[in-house]
Design a protein around this nucleic acid. Sequence first.
DNA 1: GGCAGATAGTTGAAACGTCAACTACCCGTG
DNA 2: CACGGGTAGTTGACGTTTCAACTATCTGCC
Lengths: 169, 169
Amino acid sequence: MASTTDSTRAAATQGEAEVRWLDDGQQRAWRAYLEGTARFVAALDRAHDSGSPLSLGEYHLLVQLSEQPGRTLRMSALADGLALSRSRLTHTVDRMERRGLVERQAVPGDRRGVNCVMTEAGWELLVRSAPLHVAAVRRLMVDVLEPEEFEVLGRAMGKVAREAKTYEA
Amino acid sequence: MASTTDSTRAAATQGEAEVRWLDDGQQRAWRAYLEGTARFVAALDRAHDSGSPLSLGEYHLLVQLSEQPGRTLRMSALADGLALSRSRLTHTVDRMERRGLVERQAVPGDRRGVNCVMTEAGWELLVRSAPLHVAAVRRLMVDVLEPEEFEVLGRAMGKVAREAKTYEA
DNA sequence: GGCAGATAGTTGAAACGTCAACTACCCGTG
DNA sequence: CACGGGTAGTTGACGTTTCAACTATCTGCC
């Protein structure tokens, strides 16, 4: 829940290459971000567990598909969009395919490729889960913040996302 | 990476209890938060994997301990502070204990209790890992944002944390 | 003092995620 | 056209997390 400590700072600065530690205000903000995210995601997860047969991750996957023409996306594009490893996506799609929520199809014109297609059952489950999901997101985040706060939060995390992307691959 | 879709919205509003969907700006902010957090945590994790023998989670655990008098905390307090399940903490401490980073001790006066104590080796590893950690947090988040943005982000996530806490337990 | 229910922590199996190795295919260059 | 390197996706083994069941202890109350 934290980045450092006064004592870590003291110990680490003895004869080490210099480190730009966080000042107190930054430290507070950083910890609030960490703790907030941890508790928020945990609560959102619980909301799904107890109210929908769709975990948060599966929900996101179906949302991503639902926005594509044909409700179809290549495995690689899906992995990138959801920031999942390819192998994790393979396993997840395996499980969802067994439950009949998605299907695999060959990509026309590239025999390496595999398309992930949402089934009708997947669509129906997504539609049934959406209200619960949105309600939880509102309850836990959107409605808790001032509109400007939420907007700044979005802008800030957009910047962070762009920065983190440059360190991928 | 998203909360809903125009089409989910359309489908779900047919004869359903009314749902307050997110408007476009809220949707953008929400997705930016999701994607930003996913990519940020992934990048921070990678920074630890390739530069420290301490995973991000283990690092947080040691930081938490480092701030306690005696570098000691009860298992339950540690679990609460890190927003971990008790069982997850048990397993994590098992592994760290095997590596000699922490130790278990009986809690005086409550024979159910177990204290988790950071060892000297744990402390040394924490101190060695801190500069890398802080550098990554700066590079990926703090230095990417305007000071006010970061401050608002912290305040906002503080509110979210408080709200999420009311739904725990 | 003893019982009911809460709290602390652990356990082991199943579900999930990661990692490195692997197959298969694509594309550019000589 | 072949071969070298890149991309797509999967696999299985291994490590981690979750979940429900369990033991042990504590606390309040009769």
